[in-house]
Computed example of a mutant assay.
Amino acid sequence: MIENKELLNELKFILKEENINLNSPMKEHITFRVGGPADILVHPTTYDEVIQIVKLCNKYNEHFFILGNGSNLLVKDGGIRGVVIKFDKLDNIKVDGKRIIVQSGALLKDTCKVALSNALTGIEFACGIPGSIGGATTMNAGAYDGSMSDVIESALVLDKEGNIKNLSKEQLELKYRSSAIMKHKYIVLEVTLKLENLGEDKIKNRMDDLTNKRNEKQPLEYASAGSTFKRPEGHFTGKLIQDAGLKGTRVGGAEVSSKHSGFIINKGNATAKDILDLIELVQDKVKEEFDVTLLPEVRIIGEDKED
């Protein structure tokens, strides 16, 4: 429910009407395809609009959440109160020599296509990750022995007060699934990647190889948020879950994938509660069997649905 009419009215002076959506179902905006409505969902088209929205939310003490492609996210069935700022219209990709300057909302797969067409190598690992550059930078996403920390040179971010900062790779503190962005709740506006030259054929062969491996091993035919859990030190998450006898286990419409136990999937009619209950079941069983604590890699936000 939207209670702050003053905030909504001021938003209409910042954004075009078509870029403001009320009570928007989050299941339409995250790859898990679950989640209740966001009170207000906005689509800024410039950095200045982002700054104005953040400052407006601060003015009215209204919660706001930044949304990229929604690929590492689970929104609860009660939805999200406040303002969701979706970056899908900030998706420009520009090449400058060996550098690619990418706006936060651009998808990794599109960035990889641009790198390929310009014979730039280093980001092939990300060609199948279904996220945005902003989200991938925030969590230092990675796959197949590569990660964003390998290719990021710097990032333009916004702090909670609406001030722009240009952070070097060192200042970003990129570690396994963490960063200074997460720690300080910065908002990524733009990322500069530093790549190297290589023959286009070699880059394409590498991307094709990784795409084939992903298709063979991951349940891409179902909605999910990618790997559900972080990898505990010294263990492989999928093997722990499989060895605990949980492969194929279901709660409602949620299932531990029979193809890859590290994935919880939406079989088509799951609720967020189904997924959360299955996450808890997996955590409890793995802890009981192996004394290993599995922590969610997927970010869980929003409110439970009232009965």
Results as ranks from 00 to 15, higher is better:
297 E>I: 10
283 Q>V: 03
197 N>T: 14
202 K>W: 01
277 D>I: 10
111 T>W: 12
78 G>H: 00
156 L>A: 13
128 G>E: 07
269 N>C: 07
204 K>P: 01
244 A>T: 12
273 K>Q: 06
223 A>Y: 11
140 N>I: 03
297 E>T: 09
24 S>L: 13
158 L>E: 00
220 L>Y: 13
291 D>K: 15
64 F>G: 02
294 L>P: 11
50 V>P: 07
257 S>M: 08
78 G>V: 02
233 E>F: 12
142 G>Y: 10
212 N>L: 14
33 R>S: 08
307 D>E: 15
217 K>Q: 07
100 I>R: 09
75 V>F: 00
68 G>V: 05
29 H>T: 01
292 V>K: 14
49 E>H: 13
258 S>A: 11
223 A>L: 05
145 D>P: 04
142 G>P: 04
174 L>T: 02
213 K>S: 02
212 N>W: 13
196 E>Y: 12
163 N>S: 05
79 G>T: 08
133 I>V: 15
20 I>N: 09
303 E>M: 11
54 V>H: 12
133 I>M: 13
261 S>D: 02
149 S>E: 12
3 E>Q: 14
231 R>Q: 06
191 V>W: 08
38 A>I: 06
258 S>W: 01
84 V>H: 00
266 N>R: 10
238 G>E: 08
195 L>V: 06
123 I>A: 01
65 F>W: 13
143 A>S: 02
56 L>I: 07
190 E>S: 00
86 K>D: 02
146 G>V: 09
278 L>W: 08
40 I>F: 08
76 K>C: 02
55 K>E: 08
227 S>G: 09
270 A>L: 03
29 H>P: 00
61 N>H: 11
91 D>Y: 08
295 L>M: 14
286 V>S: 04
248 G>D: 05
62 E>K: 12
102 V>A: 04
274 D>P: 01
94 K>Q: 13
59 K>Y: 05
123 I>Y: 06
36 G>D: 04
159 D>W: 13
52 Q>R: 15
7 L>Y: 11
142 G>A: 03
236 F>C: 10
264 I>M: 00
56 L>S: 02
166 N>F: 12
184 H>S: 08
